[in-house]
Every structure is written in C-alpha cells, then in structure tokens.
C-alpha cells in the first residue's frame, strides 16, 4: 500500500481518504463491541441484584431488619433469621484466613527466596494442582477422612491444652465449625500462596541485591524490603482468598454439620450461608421459606460486595501512602 509511486499521487489521495473512513468505522465498531461487553457485566450485576431483591421481597416484608440478627430458623413455624448462617460464614472464613494467610506467606517466601530452582518448580506445580481439585472432592475427603481425624486426634488434643477456653469445649466430634474452617484454609491455601509467590516474584531483583549488598541476611531482606515492597499485592492475595472462602459451598456443607445455631465452641456443628442454601433449597416448599433463602443469598451478595469495597479502599490508601 505504501509502495504507490509519486505519479499516482492523485489516486493515492482518494485512496487515502477512503482508507481513513474505513479505519474510522472499524475503530467505531471495535469501540462499540468492547463497550457492549463491559456493559454486559454491569447489566448482569444489576440483574442479579434486582432478581434477588424481587424474590426475597416476601421475606423482607415479613421479617424486616430483624432477619439479620434473629438466629431463629424454623421452617415448621416459618420463623426465619440469618444470624446463625452469617455468624457461621464469618467465623469459618476467619479461621480459614488465620491459617491460610501466614502459611501461604511462608510457602511463597520459601518458593521465591529460599528453595533451589527445581524444588521451587516442583512445589509450584503441586500447588497449582491442589488449586485445581474440585471442591466436592475436598468435601468428601473432609467428611470421610479429615473430620474423623479431627475428632479423634486434633480436637481432643486442643481440648486438653486449651480446654479452659470456651472455644474448645464440647464434644469433639470432628464435624463442626473448626473442621469447616480448616478445610476452607486448605482450599484457599493454593490460591493465596500462588498469588503471593507471583507478587514476590515481581519485587525487582536489583532491590534485593541492594539489600543483600548492604550485608543483610535473607531474613532481614525479607522483613524490611521484600514484604514491605510487596504488601499491596499480598493484601490483594489475602482478599482473593477471602472472597473464595466466604462463598465456598460444597466442602463446607460436608463437614460443618449444618445446624442453625450459634455456639461459642468451635467443635459444635454450625452453618454458613452457602451451605444453608445448598442444603435447604430442595426442601423449601412454602413461598416464604424460599423467599427467606433468597434473602440469605442477597445477604451473601452484599457481604461479598462490602469486602470488595473494603479491599479497594484499603489498597487505595496503601497506594497513596507509598507515593
């Protein structure tokens, strides 16, 4: 196209105008296409929120704000409150985060800073495989292998050491809040550690060299340079894990015991929002029951949304603090 010689200048000018028009059209088409795709996401969000609101309307009208803090969940008398499920969701997620974040941090640091290359690669593959296991498998393994093990070994041990805390009282049956939290931790661990590994991988080599060049040990470099430099990404990794943990359904449903009750003991059976939904949708025979379940879904939606907002706010503040 650019090969046209001077003699064809007049023709070339017309051709140029035409080409310009075509390009402008093409650009416009491309812009519209991408815009439509982006709009689709917003439309989905709005649609989901709207249908949740409409479907949960009977329950919203009947129970009002009390839905959030009543722990009464009785399909027979049609009294519904979400407190137990919300409590269970939050506590199991907190347990998962408390275990997975430090462990993920340690794994990521080992892989990036300490492990020899072949070991690092092998463990990285294993972590990615772990992330690919469907959650139902975690659930079945949790029910048949892990929960009995918790009941026979871990929980009695915790009870004998820390039994003075109300957290570790009650019968150690293995099925309950603690097992659900640990299973959740195992499930988000691959995620958290893989993202943290990538975050550490992005710390410039020359920055670490400079720190080592000052005569630092690996521990000093990690504590004072690598981690502070990567903190934003690390928090992001934590929130990714959090978002996954709070919405996780199958594995939790298998091991948490599915009891709509709030107990101080981590050994006691409990429930989360997603596991309540998974368990009870098939049994929801009355419109109000169904509506209450949808309202639970709405609550989960809003909790997740709030976590995202908090994450954005936190990351924004960190970014401002850095500059």
């Amino acid at each position: 196209m650019n090969g046209s010689v001077a003699g064809q200048a007049a023709g070339a000018t017309g051709e140029f105008a035409g080409r310009q028009r075509r390009q402008r059209l093409l650009d416009l088409g491309f812009k519209s296409l991408t815009q439509a795709s982006a709009t689709l996401v917003l439309a989905c969000m709005a649609g989901i929120l709207l249908s949740l609101l409409v479907r949960s309307w009977p329950s919203l009208q009947r129970f009002g704000a009390g839905f959030l803090w009543s722990s009464q969940w009785d399909p027979v008398t049609e009294e519904f409150g979400a407190a137990a499920a919300i409590f269970g969701s939050i506590v199991s997620t907190v347990i998962a985060m408390a275990l997975a974040v430090p462990l993920g941090l340690a794994i990521a640091l080992f892989l990036v800073e300490l492990a020899p290359r072949p070991v690092s690669r092998l463990v990285s593959y294993a972590i990615e495989l772990l992330a690919a296991i469907p959650s139902i498998i975690y659930g079945m393994w949790g029910l048949f292998v892990f929960a009995p093990f918790m009941g026979s070994h871990i929980e009695p041990a915790l009870q004998s050491w820390l039994g003075f805390l109300p957290l570790f009282r009650g019968p150690p049956i293995g099925i309950g809040m603690l097992s659900a939290g640990v299973i959740l931790a195992l499930m988000i661990l691959p995620f958290v550690s893989a993202v943290m590994r990538d975050v550490f991988g992005m710390v410039p080599a020359v920055l670490k060299e400079a720190a080592y060049g000052m005569g630092s040990t690996t521990w000093e470099v990690t504590r004072k340079v690598t981690v502070p430099f990567a903190v934003q990404g690390l928090v992001g990794a934590g929130f990714l894990g959090l978002a996954r943990a709070i919405g996780e359904t199958m594995a939790v449903t298998f091991v948490i015991g599915n009891s709509q009750s709030i107990s101080a003991s981590l050994f006691a059976p409990a429930n989360t929002i997603p596991s309540t939904l998974a368990n009870e949708f098939t049994e929801a025979t009355t419109p109000l029951y169904l509506s209450a379940l949808v309202e639970l879904g709405l609550v989960l939606f809003l909790i997740t949304f709030l976590i995202q907002l908090a994450a954005q706010f936190w990351l924004g503040r960190l970014a401002r603090g850095r500059r």
Binding site: V206, G213, G215
Partner: peptide, 21 residues
C-alpha cells in the same frame, strides 16, 4: 564473613534502589 565484607564494600546500582521506607 560475607556480611562484614558487604559492610566494607558498598554498592550503588544502575537504578536507584530505594527501600520501601
């Protein structure tokens, strides 16, 4: 003692390597 060596032999790099502090 590599740590003492690196105290005695300081290094400046091509790009500024300011620590996040």
């Amino acid at each position: 003692d590599v740590i003492e060596l690196r105290r005695k032999v300081g290094m400046i790099f091509q790009k500024p390597t300011v620590f996040p502090q």
